[in-house]
Computed example of a mutant assay.
Amino acid sequence: MFYGPRSGLAPRHRGGSLRSLPLVLVLTGLLLSGCGMTENDSTGSPGNPTDSTEEIPVNLPDAGTATTEEAVAAVKEVSSELYRFAGVPGNASEPGPGVKECEGKDPDTYFTVYHPWNLAPAKPGDIDVAMENLKKKLNSGGWVTKGLYHDNSPNKALNLVADNDAKKVSVWIVQYSEDTTPSLGINVTSGCYRVPEGHTVDHF
């Protein structure tokens, strides 16, 4: 469906800041570089996985019509589903989703929802279990894995990108196994919604 990671960016969200998160999951990356990547592929890897303030113009696919509240609730449910998919006890970081305008469209009418968060398993050794569970779940039940590769960071972090056409969302997960507190950096982002007639976008 959707998106792929862009060079130099990866989802790492400790500290709970939404203001530094770009819309990093974009269609062009994977469709141009090809799908069917394996864990040994490094093509399309984001390089240095750190926070970035770089804004990326994107052409997001149509996600239909919804109020801001409805779209945010849908993205939050996807994040909850991912937590369940991980299948291990752990702590999920705050804050919740944010709303941004769709590039090149009326910001009072069109919007996209993004939700960056981290999952830190209660037992550090469960980080591999969580990623294995996500790899299985994100290639079933409407989810399609678009990319699975080790990036070019010093620790060669494992990246997983998957789309769900029915839910109009994409997820990008990076496994930070070598950190003091091992965690999964997770980005969920939606397509471009249009608010119903008579409504305006609530940006936050």
Rank of each mutant, 00 (worst) to 15 (best):
S52C: 08
N139Q: 08
V99W: 05
V161F: 04
D106K: 09
S140A: 05
K76A: 03
T53C: 06
K76S: 05
G90T: 00
E70H: 13
E54Q: 13
M131L: 04
E132C: 03
E54F: 08
T43R: 08
V144G: 07
D106V: 14
P124Q: 03
E132W: 01
A92S: 00
D62S: 10
P95C: 01
K137Y: 03
E103L: 08
E77G: 04
H115K: 02
E69V: 10
K123N: 10
V78W: 09
T65D: 10
I56R: 11
E94G: 02
V99L: 09
L119H: 01
N159E: 13
N40K: 13
A120L: 03
A92I: 02
A74N: 12
D51I: 08
N155F: 15
N159V: 09
E94I: 01
G96V: 00
P107L: 12
T38E: 12
N139S: 11
G36H: 12
E103N: 14
G142I: 07
V113H: 06
N155G: 15
P97Y: 04
D51C: 06
G98T: 04
D108L: 14
L134F: 01
A122R: 00
N139T: 06
T109W: 07
L158T: 12
N155I: 14
S80E: 05
V99C: 08
D151H: 12
P89F: 02
N159L: 09
N133V: 03
G87H: 00
G147S: 10
N48G: 12
V144K: 14
P116I: 04
D151Q: 09
K135C: 04
M37R: 11
W143V: 05
V144F: 08
D126I: 03
T109Y: 14
H115L: 05
S153P: 14
L119Y: 01
S52I: 13
A157N: 12
V58Q: 06
T65W: 07
V72S: 02
A92V: 01
H150D: 15
L158W: 01
A74H: 08
N159P: 14
G98P: 02
V72K: 03
K123P: 03
C35W: 08
S45K: 09
Y149P: 11
E101H: 10
A86P: 05
N152M: 15
S42R: 06
E55Y: 09
A157K: 06
G44R: 13
A86Y: 02
A73S: 05
G44H: 08
N155C: 08
N40A: 15
V113W: 05
T43V: 09
T145W: 06
G141C: 07
E103P: 10
P124G: 02
D51L: 07
D51F: 06
G47A: 13
S79W: 00
K146G: 12
V129K: 13
P61I: 15
A74R: 08
K146M: 07
D151W: 09
L119P: 02
T112S: 12
Y83K: 02
L82P: 02
T145P: 04
V144L: 10
V72T: 06
L82I: 05
G47M: 10
P57D: 07
A63E: 09
I56G: 14
N118W: 01
F111C: 12
W117C: 01
K105P: 13
D128H: 06
P49T: 09
D106T: 07
P61Q: 12
G47E: 13
A157Y: 04
L119W: 02
L134E: 02
